[in-house]
Design a binder for these strands. Structure first.
Lengths: 232, 232
DNA sequence: TATCGATGTTACCGACCGGTAACATACCTT
DNA sequence: AAGGTATGTTACCGGTCGGTAACATCGATA
């Protein structure tokens, strides 16, 4: 019924969603049994609504009926576009991951040759997002908190994502010439995820998340070879 | 059916649960309408099972039928001890908070006059818990991730708990004479919660959580007045 | 032995869940 | 105007959910 008011998690950085034309030429051969190739306005609307609702109320907290209704459609149209709720959830997580990396890359792209500034920019961008009212931390991480360990597909997806985060932070720590780069990268990850986690509870930036950036700087300083702390 | 195999989150530190005698004298006047005064073996068994299940599979992921069955009882006996599932959930969160502070106090008690060592001991204890197979991070925080914001009672409870954590860390940072004690305390909280959050995904201590303690030390050093970094 | 409280058992309720069938409409294309 | 495609509508299914009623059983106590 009521319009969604969709505020995207990465709106703050201008990362575009999947609004690409979906031009009506059918590149997928028409006889695909599964639905994933389906292109339609309803499908897009439903998917966006689902993403929004999942993020705001949790995956278990939203039923397909509610999703379809909030998208101004109905359950039957939902099942014409998605084989099951679980398939939708998987797609939701994948989309979140896609948007996350787009956001990450955008934040980092401004300082191609300065890994230290890249890391700082990352935490600046995180803080910027945290200032949004609709921010509820990390979508993938929250999903991990509510799905049980034995839901293999989902938790594998989330695990792979988190491992990517870790790998990238390791790489950046190494690139800036840090002693004990792995340890620094891990510490950065703790600060990052700590920010997401606490943002779930504390409104806007009133929580400890504001302390992330100074801590990041101090930690990097502590891991840089004596004598060259400059670079910024 | 199968026995629970209850491994408590704070078993690692020897913090006892609510095993106190529950001596059969009824201090509560018998005509209390609500159940909370009820004392019985079944109730305790059900409650412990519920705590275990909630922690392992999430609150939405466990029904009262499953709880009662796993406790070797049945739904009817459940509702003789708890007014509703929601009431049980509230009690679960309260219990988790109680156990958490007991754990915290135990970790900190060994160094009554050394706030820096206290903080370090806290993170050591966290790492010790993270080594347990059954560890799934912070029970209260996970609950926050799966309940929607409009569940007032629960989220208020979690918020109060997190604010307590923050307050205590601020106090400790201040007590150790840190410059910018609030910022240091917040950074410590980010590391702490980051550890809980990542522990959800990474098995045992293979995740970034091992980097928490060194980072804590480096951050404290950076916040201590020049000249006196000793103390350990 | 009689009684009473705590517990187990069965059956049930209404609500909601994920998912489907059958049919009606509206629109776009030719 | 004709046909097809996308969408809406209604009704339904089996299962599970939180929650309750009625009755049976067991054990301690008096």
């Amino acid at each position: 019924m009521l319009p969604v008011g969709n505020i995207d998690i990465n709106r703050a950085l201008g990362v575009s969603s999947n609004k690409s034309g979906t031009s009506s030429g059918d590149e997928e051969s028409g006889l695909v049994a599964a639905i994933p190739g389906a292109k339609s306005r309803v499908r897009d609307r439903i998917f966006e609504t689902a993403c929004d609702l999942f993020y705001r109320h949790g995956i278990h907290g939203v039923g397909v009926d509610a999703i379809a209704a909030e998208a101004g459609s109905n359950k039957m149209s939902f099942y014409r576009s998605f084989v099951s709720k679980e398939a939708l959830v998987t797609e939701y997580l994948r989309e979140q991951e896609r948007e996350y990396w787009a956001w990450w890359d955008a934040a980092v792209a401004r300082f191609p040759d300065n890994p230290r500034r890249q890391v700082e920019a990352l935490f600046e961008a995180q803080l910027a997002i945290a200032m949004s009212n609709s921010c509820r931390g990390c979508a993938l991480g929250n999903a991990a908190a509510e799905i049980s360990d034995d839901e293999d597909e989902l938790s594998t997806l989330v695990r792979a994502y988190k491992e990517q985060v870790r790998k990238r932070l390791h790489a950046m720590a190494h690139a800036m010439g840090a002693r004990d780069a792995e340890s620094l990268g891990d510490a950065l990850m703790l600060l990052l995820d700590g920010g997401y986690f606490t943002r779930l509870i504390f409104p806007l930036a009133s929580g400890p998340i504001s302390a992330a950036l100074p801590a990041v700087r101090a930690l990097i300083d502590a891991h840089l070879p004596r004598g060259r702390q400059p670079n910024q």
